[in-house]
Amino acid sequence: MLKETTTIQIKGIREGLLVSFGDEDWDILTSALINQINERPNFYQSARIVLDAGSHTLGVNELVSLRDVLSEHGITLWAVLSNSSTTEQTAQNLGLATRISKPKSINDEEPVDRISDEKALWIQHTLRSGTRIEFPGNVIVFGDVNPGAEVMAGGSVLVWGRLRGLVHAGANGNEEAVVGALEFSPMQLRIAGKIAVSPKKNAKGKLEIAKLVDGNLIAEPWKSG
């Protein structure tokens, strides 16, 4: 079902309704969406919406207020797709999905085994339980990764703090990726296709780096040189 106005498109997809925004002013777009909903409230009742925000750069206030307004109409906003990394980060912080099951475009897939030489993602705070970080390159966390937090990186992950959550390095298949932490005590560790749990539960972590050696996940104390 395709419904179009000059500024927004609404389309039925497998995961619910896909609402695509153009480049107009954010307030105009959200008003247009609410008008659509008010015209046929019963149709939208209990709907699950994926918002394609295009190139809009959105902060916490905009997404939270949109989510709340939709919620008052009985609609759940569960995912936000975006070309802007700021918007994607905001959505992730609010617990919204930033991908739906079908990849946006086949051309976007990262080639396997390439360690990204772009800038690493630098996260300057502790990741609390329920936080999920996804990034195609290397990730550095300047803080702790708490139990219940997840870091999924195409490249390597370094935690300048306590690693007690879940890390998946080399998530696109890169077996050269490594995981290191000042206090290495992950809930679960994955590099490329391998998964492992810590040998001693709740032990205090030491300064260690984990890597894949001959298909096995090995963690060893960090030695320079």
Binding site: V60, V64, G95, R128, S129, T131, N146
Partner: peptide, 15 residues
């Protein structure tokens, strides 16, 4: 404590 950590994270994210 796990749940509290999650909630604190949500409160931070929503300012």
């Amino acid at each position: 404590v796990r749940d509290a950590d999650r909630v604190i994270g949500i409160l931070d994210a929503e300012e």
